Amino acid sequence: MNFLLDDFLPYQLSTSSNAVSDLIASEYKSRFGLKIPEWRVMAVLGTRGASTQRHLVEATLMDKVTVNRAVKNLVDRALLDRSPNSADGRSHHLLLSSTGRDLYGQILPAAQAMDKKIMAVLSAEEKAELAAMLAKIKKSADTIARA
């Protein structure tokens, strides 16, 4: 069997994702004191509003332990507010606190600038094609996982 790791899609996606995440992580850590999971939680809450931890796991595709740790750190830093979930007494609604919204407002332009810098190697058409292809791949994986 002739297997080339560099041509294996999961390897390509993982190494590309890790390279981008590591680049961004160094900036978030040095400028804002956040790790990538913490930023992902803040980004979901910043764009989608209040959420439960279970929904954060689904939205970020991170495991429960990673999300739990990120939420705890953000609550400890007063970047998130927690309120009881009347529909499920075992969970809480989480949302960005005032301090969290302020920090999110500082991070978002930096995140967008880094995204623009990274994606500058692609034309507008290539960006659209990449987004469409990644959506198709994710849909395919989701369909196979449900089967």
Rank of each mutant, 00 (worst) to 15 (best):
M133Y: 07
K117S: 13
R40L: 10
L96Q: 00
V20Q: 00
I118L: 09
F3W: 11
A50I: 03
S86G: 09
D76E: 14
V57N: 01
L95F: 05
N18Y: 12
L79R: 07
A113Y: 01
L79I: 15
M42L: 06
S140E: 10
Q12C: 10
R77M: 14
L108T: 07
S140L: 14
Y28P: 00
A128K: 11
R146C: 05
L4C: 07
D6M: 11
L80F: 12
T143C: 04
K29P: 03
A131Q: 15
S26K: 14
A19V: 04
H92T: 10
A78D: 15
N2S: 13
A120V: 12
R146Y: 03
I24D: 01
V75D: 10
R101P: 04
L95G: 11
L61G: 11
Y104V: 00
Q12P: 00
T66N: 13
A19Y: 02
D76S: 12
I107P: 05
L96N: 04
V71G: 01
S30L: 08
V41R: 01
K35S: 09
T60N: 11
K29M: 13
E58L: 10
M62R: 04
R77D: 14
L23A: 11
V65C: 06
V71P: 01
S140N: 14
K116I: 09
S97C: 07
P109G: 01
D22W: 06
M114S: 03
T99E: 15
S21V: 00
I118N: 02
D6F: 09
N85L: 08
R146H: 13
Q53H: 14
H55Y: 14
T15C: 10
T60D: 08
N2E: 14
F8A: 07
I137D: 05
W39H: 02
R48K: 12
L45Y: 05
D22Q: 11
E129N: 06
D115S: 11
D88K: 01
R146P: 01
M1N: 08
S98N: 13
T66M: 09
D81V: 12
G105H: 04
N18D: 14
K64W: 06
D142F: 00
Q12H: 02
G46K: 00
D22P: 00
P37N: 07
H92E: 09
R48Y: 04
S14P: 02
R77W: 08
V67A: 14
G105P: 02
D81G: 01
G49E: 03
A87Y: 09
L108I: 06
M1I: 13
R69T: 15
N73H: 15
R90P: 03
L80Q: 05
R54G: 09
I36P: 03
L45K: 00
V57T: 14
K136R: 15
S26W: 07
L4T: 11
E129H: 05
R101E: 02
L5V: 12
S97T: 06
D88V: 02
K72Q: 13
R48N: 10
S14K: 11
K72P: 07
R54F: 10
T47H: 13
L80T: 03
A59Q: 08
S98Y: 08
W39R: 03
